[in-house]
């Protein structure tokens, strides 16, 4: 399975997916105390991604971008944001 995935990764030219991420236990391999992300500041960039259902309406992305602009945030879209595979995002 992982070989197939690696081959596919090469085919689609995506090198960022870790197929060999060590699986941590439910208790976590990292710190037990809360890991707090940095707060948002005006001018920051939001990455817009779609890890679940496919997007059928390009207007949704425009509305999201305008929403972020109203919060003084920039937007960067995921490479596969608009991909579709049946009801799932993303196939290319």
């Amino acid at each position: 399975m992982s070989i197939t995935r690696r081959q596919i990764l090469q085919m689609v030219g995506t090198g960022l997916v870790a197929t060999q991420v060590p699986m941590a236990s439910a208790s976590g391999i990292f710190s037990k105390s809360a890991l707090k992300p940095p707060r948002l500041k005006p001018g920051d960039t939001v990455g817009l991604v779609n890890p679940a259902g496919a997007t059928f309406h390009p207007e949704d992305v425009v509305i999201a971008e305008e929403t972020f602009e109203a919060l003084e945030l920039k937007m960067k879209t995921g490479d596969h944001l608009m991909d579709r595979y049946g009801y799932l995002c993303c196939h290319r």
Binding site: P38, G47, A52, D79, L81
Partner: peptide, 24 residues
Amino acid sequence: EARAADINSMYSDPDVDAIITLRG
């Protein structure tokens, strides 16, 4: 792989500060 790659690259991209999903 593609959906996971988008999440992973947003975390590794130094130009991205936060991640918001488009839909569920």
